Computed example of a mutant assay.
Amino acid sequence: MRRLFYKGMLADTVEITGSDAHHLMHVMRAKAGQQIILVDDANQVARMEMTAFREDAVTLTLLERLEADTESPIDLILAQCLLKSDKMDMVVQKAVELGAVGVIPVRSQNCVVRYDAKKAAARQQRWQKIADEAAKQCGRTALLEVAPVTDIKSLLESENGQQDSVLVFFYENEDQQTVKDYLQKITVRRIVLLVGPEGGFSLEEAKAVEEAGGKSVTLGPRILRAETAALTAMSVVQYECGDLG
């Protein structure tokens, strides 16, 4: 059943406008009597019936409130160094499916792609649309937020002083502390995963992250592609600390 996210609170009658209304009427060719799942800003979920149509709006009538919270008990955030566009698209989509609440695109020294300010803003909008659509398809009860593109220095500054939070740094030169061993030592609500680009992290970046309190861990003895590392990292964290275990 089609799922929509509503910027407001559930009520007996709700009016959908904008792109969602256009999609229902002109893409799905929806008709009166058809049903959808609606999620509001408070993560409340309901089964709704389409009861009326105007040129730019669809009226929904409440049928049933649902107990359907699909959110992880942890706030998982992926700080992903920029990848080639198709890989970054895929990582954002899978982050939604794996229960992350945010993706932070990060510029780093060895990133293959380089965006000016205009292109970076356009990419952020694209990734947000991908995330929103993925949330509808996989049954999320909250939308993932894609942050503006930032750099490692700014990321570390923003993480400084965060409460009940850790920054986990996946580093190819780490050979002592596994991600499993580290995760079994912590009990925090918010976990930020920093994953490098295709070219890996520079020594200067690795040193800066560790000096800022990032915890260096390894994902095992094999060298993983950047997109594989991101998906593996999120899966391992959700298994150990979230809702995949």
Rank of each mutant, 00 (worst) to 15 (best):
E133F: 02
M28C: 11
L231G: 01
W127T: 06
A142R: 15
E67V: 12
L76D: 03
D181R: 13
V113W: 07
V101F: 04
T61W: 13
Q44P: 04
I104P: 08
I223Y: 05
Q163V: 15
V217C: 10
A233D: 00
G213T: 07
E97F: 01
L60D: 12
A32Y: 06
E198V: 07
V58C: 03
A131I: 08
L156P: 10
C81Q: 04
S154G: 14
L193W: 00
D116A: 12
K94W: 06
Q34V: 06
M1D: 02
R123Y: 11
A95Y: 04
A206M: 11
K87L: 15
E174A: 02
Q80V: 08
A79R: 02
C111A: 09
Q109D: 10
A212F: 03
V106W: 07
S72G: 06
G139M: 00
M88C: 10
D69L: 05
D132F: 03
A68S: 14
Q35T: 13
V217M: 06
G99T: 07
D132E: 14
K136F: 07
M1Y: 07
H22C: 01
G220A: 00
R126G: 03
K31D: 12
A135C: 09
D175R: 14
A134G: 02
T13R: 14
S158F: 10
D181C: 07
L156M: 09
G161P: 05
T70C: 10
A57E: 00
G213A: 08
I74S: 09
I16E: 01
Q125L: 09
M28Q: 10
D89Q: 13
W127L: 13
Y115H: 11
G214Y: 03
S154M: 13
N160R: 14
I152W: 08
Q124A: 09
V39Y: 00
L194G: 09
Q184G: 07
R29H: 13
D75T: 14
V149P: 07
V146I: 12
V14R: 02
S202D: 08
C81E: 06
K185L: 13
D89G: 06
L60T: 08
T232A: 15
V192Q: 11
R29D: 02
S202E: 07
E159N: 12
N160P: 06
G99P: 01
H26G: 02
E97K: 05
T232G: 14
V91M: 12
Q163N: 14
K87E: 15
E15T: 15
I152Q: 10
F170D: 04
L144H: 01
L60N: 06
L219Y: 04
C111L: 05
F201M: 09
Y6N: 04
M234S: 05
I191V: 14
I74N: 09
T51I: 15
I130P: 01
D181P: 07
Q184C: 06
W127H: 08
L144A: 03
L62Q: 14
D40E: 00
K153D: 14
